[in-house]
Simulated assay, not measured.
Amino acid sequence: MDSAVLVTTFGIIFLAELGDKTQLTAMALATRYPWKKVFIGIAVAFAVLNLGAVLIGKLLFAILPLFWIKLVSGVLFLFFGITTFRGGEDHEDGDGKRASARGPVVTSFFMILLAELGDKTQLVTTSLAAQYDSTLAVFTGSTLALWLVSLIGIFLGRQLMRVVPLATIHKAAGLLFFLFGIIILYQVVAAP
């Protein structure tokens, strides 16, 4: 594995995602679900996305029109925005266990998968894989960068819960999800 390609890919992807919707989504999900389950869902989604980016590349976009990906992603963000703003129906019981089996791992996986499919970091990963003859280094660097950015978002979200009441965080996270949904749907409508 080419360590220079790994470090270059890591740096580019890390900086591109820092403060982006993925990190904010991870933060918001961590205020609603157990952080370990959120991270598992996010980690698997990024591994799948990056595997697709380096192995399939541009072929992926020929099979799945970006219009439909963005449309589904926008609707999903609106849905989670509304349910999160309302405080959701999932609540932890006294032992910290989930009262509902809705699935934080599955929720996190699909939110990230749909939000990031065709996103700039996936396109950059595809481009880097095409430029360098080190697919494994590009995959590893990109995946590690996305995981680290997500963990930072998750832990910032957890720290926020210590200072701000959970109901306020739910409302802010719901508004954030809703805003992302509107932005994504606007991009779908405004696209030429």
Rank of each mutant, 00 (worst) to 15 (best):
M1Q: 11
D2R: 14
D2N: 15
A4I: 04
V5M: 09
V5K: 07
L6W: 08
T9M: 06
T9W: 05
F10N: 09
I12R: 12
I13G: 04
F14K: 07
F14R: 03
L15F: 12
E17M: 08
E17I: 03
L18K: 08
L18I: 04
G19Q: 08
D20V: 02
M27P: 07
A28F: 03
A28Y: 01
A28W: 01
A30K: 08
T31A: 15
Y33L: 13
Y33W: 15
P34K: 13
K36M: 12
K37I: 00
F39L: 15
F39C: 13
I42T: 12
I42G: 07
F46M: 14
F46D: 11
L49A: 11
L49V: 03
L51H: 01
G52P: 00
G52W: 00
G52K: 01
G57S: 10
K58W: 07
K58Q: 14
F61G: 10
A62E: 14
A62H: 09
P65K: 04
P65L: 02
L66H: 10
W68M: 14
V72H: 09
S73P: 13
S73C: 09
G74C: 10
F80H: 11
G81T: 01
T83R: 14
T84K: 04
F85D: 05
G87P: 03
G88V: 00
H91Y: 11
E92P: 08
D93T: 00
K97N: 14
K97C: 02
K97I: 00
S108M: 02
S108T: 01
F110L: 15
I112Q: 02
L114S: 01
E116F: 02
L117C: 12
G118F: 03
G118N: 08
K120E: 14
V124D: 12
V124M: 15
T125E: 05
T126L: 11
L128A: 14
A129G: 10
A130F: 12
Q131Y: 10
Q131V: 07
Q131P: 01
Y132T: 07
Y132S: 15
D133E: 14
T135I: 10
L136H: 06
V138P: 07
S142T: 00
T143M: 10
T143I: 00
L144P: 04
W147N: 06
W147V: 07
L148T: 13
L151C: 13
I152F: 10
G153V: 00
F155L: 15
R158H: 06
V163C: 01
L166W: 04
T168R: 07
I169S: 09
A172D: 01
A173D: 10
L175Y: 00
F177Q: 04
F177R: 03
F178E: 03
F180N: 02
G181D: 11
I182H: 08
I183Y: 13
I183E: 15
L185G: 12
L185I: 02
A190H: 13
A190T: 06
A191R: 12
